[in-house]
Design a protein around this nucleic acid. Structure first.
Lengths: 332, 332
DNA sequence: CTGAAAGCGCTTACAG
DNA sequence: CTGAAAGCGCTTACAG
């Protein structure tokens, strides 16, 4: 209960050994007699001693904290992606004796991250999104802070981990084309998100393999709001498009609303698919065909990469994780 | 750039003063000559010195970290509530020189929180949800860790802050009754969430004031999944209920789906309202009438309460924040 | 195998 | 107004 203030010195005194010895018993480093080690450990166990990690950190020039960089611009905070990611990271960190400190940033304002770094509160960082020309990434590099990026980046020196969005989108598109879709449209968001580009590439990959395919494909990027989606849907209906693929759930919901307002039935009159599967779509009827990623796993793996980096291990620069195709009612 | 390793000792030596003096110039505590203070501050400014907060913390027996306790049981992690809350907390903490460390817990497993406490990584904590018989709360109390609870609790000694769910729900229900609804149903989730109880009370408050009201009200609590909602909706339709009020967005989505499947039009054939307004409902058509809370503000205020608590200030035990009624198309 | 001592980068009585 | 010294709770060469 109040053993919380027990120190290594108290234990040393109580046991008639030196602090050095106690420290060694705990850390397991350095030579120490089997007997003494056991005695110390027994005492510690009995009195619920637990070391002051901050003091340990000061001595070792470490903090045992990992910085988690989260974006909060526009509505992005609300995406379940970040929470699931955080869960994976937090669990991995925990199991290695690390804690997670958060820094919320926008492309324009990375002061929280800067504070964490200049205050020496973190040993390394995890970025949960990558932009082309990423401010947090740049800052971390300049200041020599080890980090791993969730998402992809052109920077070959950065350790990065991501789901294979490109393949995922190729496969999803492939599925649709196989079913004989002849007119297909893609709607996507901000092009400065690298994930947008990857998904676009995957979409296009699906066509490059099919010389015989003679349909129509339409692409709309940088879509910002539901109003824009609405106008696009209007256009697509006029063109008798058979399937609308959205790059994320927000866009997909907008598409579904636009269709619902016009009383267009899914999938009977038009098919719909999404490249991401979150709670926004989860309980929709009809259920929406999409690609699913194990985000918690992604966070977990990212964290372990960072931990290995901190241990000065050699680490693969690029990791690609899989995905799961979820073909449901809205398009099959 | 690499001024990051500058210490108070370096500065003292460079300026020919003692470390004590430098420390005083920085902290502003203790008597110090105006001249020397300026000299030190100028040097610091020029060389971008920033103190090692960990060392400072060790000396002062503080960490300048706040623990943020987040639940991750069932699908709760995905609720945007927690992210918005986190944003508010993080910004408030930041502006006071504190950082936020996360602990993810379930009612059964609070090891992450325990670690943060026994490792002395945090000065205090913020709970982002309250349960009846709350394990994290109990733990924090037993260990003398200052905390504030977002949400309400019976424990009168705990500092708590919450939106006024009860009034909000009374007002929403009132609005509906005023419009002449004669058959109204309430659907709610887990009763061990205190917020569920508050909302229920508010719902019932709306009736206690109306002796003349002679309609029917139905209540369903502890609803766990969409299947259960579906069955209830079936029942409610048979009873010709005029309005279904859901205690949260997840339930509301379930209700909407159940209605959509049966081709029942909202609001023409039945009205629908929700007690919470998140991204799950945001882009729905028809737009859903609900109560809206400023969650970022809630987090912000919670954090400032905790900070005042850490400064040993007297703090109001209970703070109730307002809400906003959003009457839209689904019920008016 | 064990310990005295210096050190991590700060703060803070205490003395002058 | 300023500084020498002890202290926060640990680690780690160095010496024995």
């Amino acid at each position: 209960m109040d053993d919380r203030n027990l120190t290594i010195g108290d234990i040393a005194e109580e046991l008639g050994v030196s602090k050095t010895t106690v420290s060694r018993a705990i850390s397991g480093k350095g030579r120490i007699g089997e007997q003494t080690r056991k005695r110390v450990l027994a005492y510690i166990e009995e009195h619920h001693y637990s070391p002051n990690v901050v003091a340990k950190g000061l001595a070792q020039n470490k903090t045992f904290n990992l910085g988690l960089v989260l974006p909060w611009d526009y509505n992005i905070v609300e995406l379940p992606f970040f929470q699931n990611c955080m869960l994976g990271i937090s669990r991995a960190a925990s199991s290695h004796g690390y804690d997670v400190l958060i820094s919320m940033v926008t492309p324009e304002d990375i002061t929280q991250l800067k504070r964490a770094v200049t205050n020496r509160k973190i040993d390394g960082a995890i970025l949960t999104r990558t932009l082309t020309d990423d401010a947090p990434m740049k800052y971390l590099k300049e200041n020599g802070v080890p980090f791993v990026a969730i998402g992809s980046t052109d920077d070959d020196m950065a350790v990065q981990i991501d789901n294979d969005h490109r393949s995922a989108c190729r496969e999803l598109t492939d599925k649709l084309l196989e079913r004989g879709v002849k007119k297909i449209a893609l709607i996507g968001g901000d092009e400065s998100y690298i994930v947008t580009r990857s998904r676009l590439s995957g979409f296009e990959d699906a066509f490059t393999g099919r010389k015989e395919w003679n349909g129509t494909k339409l692409t709309f990027l940088n879509i910002k709001n539901s109003h824009e989606v609405d106008q696009i849907v209007e256009k697509l209906l006029a063109e008798q498009v058979e399937c609308i693929v959205s790059m994320d759930d927000f866009l997909c919901v907008c598409v579904l609303n636009a269709l619902q307002q016009r009383q267009i039935a899914v999938p009977r009159q038009i098919q719909v698919a999404s490249f991401y599967d979150s709670s926004m779509l989860k309980y929709r009827i009809p259920s929406i065909s999409s690609v699913r990623f194990n985000v918690e796993e992604l966070g977990h793996r990212a964290c372990e990469l960072l931990l290995r980096l901190l241990d000065e291990e050699e680490v693969e620069k690029r990791t690609l994780l899989g995905y799961e195709m979820c073909i449901k009612e809205s398009a099959k």
